[in-house]
């Protein structure tokens, strides 16, 4: 079975600063993989490389067998044309820490935009799909509200619906609760948990350790741009093999 995501020897630098120094990671259909680690460990950068919001210098990322962003042309690495990259980005869905909802559109229109423009659905079909996913995240009552009229938790749920409605092969969650007031965190985590239970393939960057332990099929601990330890949640949280991970967990709430 072709894995949903296959990252091979990924390297990324910001100028002189090496942020990712050789990442190998495989995610199969139905996997829920959590990326944990200290700030600066590279976990968010890794996530953002998967949908090419960040470029990478070496290595490859394959989604359902297709090389993302770059192509091997006669031994030389070439960047794919923008249109192809746009299409490839639609294979994944991303939910951002800052939600990034389009403020001038209602919740419904936010979810419909990608369906109409990228997937080229008709207005009625797009509306039906959008309403279905808004309902799924519990936001159907507020479909005609603007982001400015919604709470942080509500906005994030709409943002998740916007990403999932595109029917991606892989969902990317970038610290989706880090900007939320504490009382709003649970409603968003509940949505993610629910989607995971339904078999959605996910790659999650999070600081919520309890959540990571509960929902993940695999946990990856990153440190200074490489994968320091990976394994099932029971091992990572219950019996960490490295001192570094043990130290990290001791400092985090678990």
């Amino acid at each position: 079975m072709t894995p949903v995501l296959k990252i091979t020897d990924l390297h990324k630098s910001f100028g002189d600063l090496k942020v990712l120094t050789g990442i190998d990671l495989t995610v199969h259909k139905g996997d829920v993989v959590s990326l944990i680690g200290a700030s600066g460990s590279g976990k968010t950068t890794l996530l953002r490389c998967v949908n090419l919001l960040e470029e990478f210098e070496r290595g490859s990322i394959e989604i359902a067998g297709e090389a993302i962003g770059y192509r091997d042309e006669g031994g030389r690495r070439r960047r794919r044309p923008e249109r192809q990259i746009a299409r490839q980005r639609a294979m994944t869905g991303m939910a951002f820490q800052q939600f990034n909802l389009f403020p001038h559109m209602t919740a419904l229109k936010n979810v419909m935009l990608g369906l109409v423009k990228t997937k080229k659905l008709g207005q009625d079909e797009a509306r039906a799909v959008a309403e279905k996913w808004l309902d799924r995240v519990g936001m159907i009552e507020r479909k005609d509200h603007y982001p400015g009229q919604l709470s942080g938790g509500q906005q994030q749920r709409v943002a998740i619906a916007r990403a999932i409605a595109m029917n991606p092969q892989l969902m990317l969650f970038d610290e989706v609760t880090s900007s939320l007031d504490p009382e709003l965190v649970q409603e968003v985590l509940a949505v993610v948990r629910d989607l995971a239970a339904d078999g959605m393939t996910m790659l999650i960057v999070t600081h919520e350790m309890r959540f990571a332990r509960d929902v993940s099929t695999k946990v990856v601990f990153m440190h200074q741009g490489r994968i320091a330890e990976e394994g099932p949640p029971e091992q990572i949280f219950g019996a960490p093999k490295s001192e570094r991970l043990a130290g990290f967990l001791a400092n985090s709430e678990i």
């Binding site: 949908n51 090419l52 919001l53 923008e82 249109r83 746009a86 299409r87 980005r89 639609a90 994944t92 869905g93 991303m94 951002f96 990034n100 909802l101 389009f102 935009l113 990608g114 423009k117 990228t118 997937k119 943002a159 916007r162 990403a163 595109m166």
Partner: peptide, 9 residues
């Protein structure tokens, strides 16, 4: 970034 992530050119 959000627009890119839903595949817009």
């Amino acid at each position: 970034e959000a627009a890119k992530s839903i595949g817009l050119t």
